[in-house]
């Protein structure tokens, strides 16, 4: 039983640790940010989980192209759904944080925000593309090819372009992310576990979604 559920147990413990210690641990005193710097423990790992799920989706899309199995296609779709689901709290938390530090809910000055908006539209198009094709095999192939394109475009929009221009986000505008000025060692103690915890948690949601869709498929047969 433990062998099957180890990653879920670890993710729950790690996330619980980050919820408690993330609010208690000493953080750098900074103007404007003040206590909101703790949002790094919650807002950023959510985005990492989204990126991770999109990567899982890409892997299963490529796999479905080589194996031609419908199961892989369904997994790719489920991973994209979970990733999409994580992008919504990511956007909302970012928006709230921006309101109180950058004084606006949304700014078009920041390439990362624009990139994220475009990426979300790209993945929306992926879902619409899937719904528009009735033939299962055709749907698997076309949406897998599109998914490869979508993943690459998302990385261009939220990882590459923001680094080429000035951005309000730390670690952009030429600097590598999480340079020594952005995170001190106290924050790393919470931030890195938080990323791992949320990645595992997203994988748990992905597995639940898979099991439900396989049950659904069996029901259709």
């Amino acid at each position: 039983m433990i062998m099957k559920h180890w990653y879920k147990i670890i993710s729950v413990f790690i996330i619980f640790y980050t919820l408690v210690w993330g609010l208690l641990n000493p953080v750098p005193r900074l103007d404007i940010l003040n206590e909101t710097i703790r949002n790094v423990y919650y807002h950023v790992p959510i985005w990492f989980a989204m990126l991770f799920m999109m990567l899982v989706s890409l892997i299963f899309s490529i796999k479905s192209l080589s194996t031609n199995k419908l199961a892989d296609d369904i997994k790719a779709y489920n991973a994209a759904v979970v990733g999409f689901f994580f992008s919504i709290p990511g956007l909302l938390t970012g928006s709230v944080w921006a309101k109180f530090t950058w004084t606006t809910w949304w700014t078009f000055q920041d390439p990362k925000l624009n990139g994220v908006a475009i990426s979300i539209l790209i993945y929306l198009a992926y879902f619409i593309l899937r719904f528009s094709i009735d033939d299962e095999l055709k749907r698997a192939r076309i949406s897998a090819v599109y998914n490869v394109f979508a993943f690459v475009m998302m990385n261009v929009f939220i990882m590459i372009l923001p680094r080429l221009t000035d951005s309000l986000h730390p670690g952009n505008g030429g600097n590598p992310a999480f340079a020594k000025y952005d995170l001190d060692s106290n924050m790393r103690m919470v931030f890195y576990p938080a990323v791992v915890g949320w990645l595992l948690f997203s994988f748990w949601l992905f597995q639940i979604k898979n099991r439900i869709s396989f049950l659904n498929n069996k029901l259709d047969d």
Partner: peptide, 15 residues
Amino acid sequence: ISVISIIFFSIVLFL
């Protein structure tokens, strides 16, 4: 912290 923990654990229980 206790409020957040209760919410988190109820979500985990639900899952």
